[in-house]
């Protein structure tokens, strides 16, 4: 159905190959995390999925149809910055998606249709934990809240595919862990295929169903930029995460990078000595 199929995609900038020979099939409802060193073209790949860039060679299809030539409401996006509109309130930012759809001429709703749209937007804001901040402007929100708003704004347009470009990269670890929980919840609840670019491996593995690494196989100065990055690793995350079936939260065996230090049950530095002192 809504699978994204990427066939032999190449991308060059000014004679430098950025991406070469990308072949990828993304199943519907997957949560794919793209990782790789900076400059490896993972953001370029995301921009191609967004139709902001076009591949020089190869094809990308969604649900069997070639990717439209410009961004559209079928693919939502959250960037690291500048995702929300500074001149609209929190509520206005979310209502905007509904207004644009319903009012082609004025881009604004009035009266009862506006109230209906606002109610829907309030519901969405509550779902991302922004209830009570409706009348604030984005500049009054913290970074984490701005990204929650960006998620709400993207999801109100009901995209089939959600593209995330290092969305949580600028957030503090604690805030990031909270928004990861939210991201998981949203992905389970809504019919979304998610493609996320991140430079944080632990984020990739804690959110994704599949982690894909982009890398240049050769990167010598003497190559003259003729070797681009391609997919070098493709992990299925285990145990399998299945959209819509959140696992009951179980104790993790190993603490994540952003988790608090686990308690060993004693204040001693050396737990090995515990219990069996001679």
């Amino acid at each position: 159905m809504n699978a994204i199929i990427v066939k032999d995609v190449w991308k060059e900038y000014d004679g430098r190959v950025i991406l070469e020979g990308i072949n990828l099939e993304i199943a519907p409802r997957a949560f794919v995390a793209l990782v790789g060193p900076s400059g490896c073209g993972k953001t370029t790949f995301l921009r191609m999925l967004l139709s902001e860039e076009r591949p020089d060679r190869g094809t990308i299809t969604i649900a069997g149809a070639p990717l439209p030539r410009e961004p559209g409401a079928d693919r939502g996006v959250v960037f690291q910055r500048y995702s929300v509109f500074p001149h609209l309130t929190v509520l206005g930012n979310v209502v905007l998606g509904l207004e644009l759809k319903a009012a082609p001429l004025l881009g604004r709703l009035f009266g009862s249709s506006r109230r209906a749209a606002e109610d829907e937007a309030r519901g969405m804001l509550a779902a991302v934990g922004l209830a009570g901040s409706e009348e604030k402007y984005p500049a009054q929100l913290s970074g984490g809240m701005q990204q929650r708003l960006a998620l709400a704004q993207a999801l109100i347009a009901k995209p089939k595919v959600l593209l995330l470009d290092e969305p949580f990269g600028a957030l503090d670890p604690g805030i990031r862990a909270e928004i990861h929980v939210l991201m998981q919840k949203l992905w389970h609840e809504r019919p979304l295929t998610v493609v996320m670019v991140t430079h944080d491996l632990s984020e990739a593995f804690s959110l994704g169903t599949r982690v894909i690494a982009f890398e240049r196989r050769r990167n010598e100065p003497s190559d003259g930029g003729r070797y681009g990055a391609t997919i070098t690793r493709d992990f299925e995350v285990w145990p399998k995460r299945i959209a819509g079936e959140p696992r009951p939260s179980k104790k993790k065996t190993m603490p994540g990078r952003d988790d608090p230090v686990p308690s060993t049950g004693s204040l001693r530095d050396d737990p090995a000595l515990q219990g069996d002192t001679p």
């Binding site: 967004l50 693919r75 996006v77 509109f85 207004e99 644009l100």
Partner: peptide
């Protein structure tokens, strides 16, 4: 911002206006 507006379904006219 312009990309974001397009993913919300905005036309050129709507992007100018809103």
């Amino acid at each position: 911002q312009s990309i974001k507006a397009q993913t919300l379904g905005a036309s050129t006219w709507q992007i100018i206006l809103r």
